[in-house]
Amino acid sequence: MASRADDADFRTKLQEWIPKLVLSPSVALMLVFVYGFILYTIYLSFTGSKMLPKYDLIGIDNYVRLWGLSAWWTAVSNLAVFATLYITICTAIGLTLAILLDQKIRGEGMLRPIYLYPMALSFIVTGTAWKWFLDPGIGLEHTMHLWGWESFEFGWIKDRNMAIYTIVIAAVWQTSGFVMAMFLAGLRGIDNEILKAAQIDGASNWSLYRRIVIPLLRPAFLSAFVILAHLAVKSYDLVIALTGGGPGRATELPATFMYSYTFTRNQMGTGAASAVIMLMTIAAIMMPYLYSELKEKK
C-alpha cells in the first residue's frame, strides 16, 4: 500500500499553528488589559478600597452608597438628559443634512468636509472654542450687544440649570457631521431602481422618503445609535474642557464622577462601582449590535 508522507506533515501542522500564534499577543493583551481589568474593577467595587486598592470584600455597600449619593444622581440624570438630546439632535441634523446634501447639490464636495472637520478635533479643543464662544462676557452675547442687540442674553454656561445644554451643543457640533456622513453613505447605497419604482408608483417626495428611503436606512440608524450612545456614556474630556463639571456640580457626568471619586476623593471602591455601572450600560446597548455583527459575518 501507499507510504505515509510524514515529512510534509510537519509543515502543514506548523502552518496550522502559525495563525493562532500570531493572534495570541493581541488576545493575551486583550484578556489581561480589557477583561482581566474589568474583572479586577468589578472585584474592587465590592471592596472597601479608598486611596489604594484593598482586597477586603464588603458586599454591595459601595453600590448602596453610590445610589445614595446626590452627586451620582446628578451625574446619572445629567447623562440621561445629555444622551437623549445628543443622540436625538445628532441623528436629526445628520439625517436632514444627508438628505439635503443628496439632492444633487452643487458644492457638495466643499460642504461635506466643512460639516465633517469638527470630528478631527479633540474634545479639549472643541471645549476650549465653545467655552469662550458661549461666555457671556466676551463671546456671543457680548458680540450681540456690540452689534446693538442689547437685550440679547445667552448665559447658559454660567447657569446651573442650563449648563448641561451647552455640553449638548458642543457635542452635537463635534459629531453631527460624522452622523451625516453615515446617513449619506446609507443613502448612496440604496438601489436607485427602488426609488424609480416608487416614483412610478406615484409616491410624492415626502412619502418617498418617509415610506421608502428612511426605512431602508435602518442599518445606518442602528450604527449611528450605537456610536452616539457609547460616545455619550464615555463623555469626559468635553465636560472637563467646557465646564469642568460646573457650575458647582451641575454638569457632572458618570465619567467625571468616577474620575473625581477615584483619584481625587480617594473613594476607589465607590469609583469602581460607578465604572461597573457605566460598563453595564454600554454592554446593554452593545449586545444586540455585537450579536448582529457576529451572526451576519459567519
Partner: peptide, 23 residues
C-alpha cells in the same frame, strides 16, 4: 475565532473608566 473577534469588538466600546484603576 468568532468568540475572539466578539471579545475584541466589545473591547472597542468599553468605557475606559472600567480599566483606569488597574491600569
Amino acid at each position: 475565532d468568532n468568540i475572539i473577534f466578539g471579545l475584541l469588538l466589545f473591547s472597542c466600546f468599553i468605557p475606559f473608566q472600567i480599566v483606569l484603576i488597574p491600569m
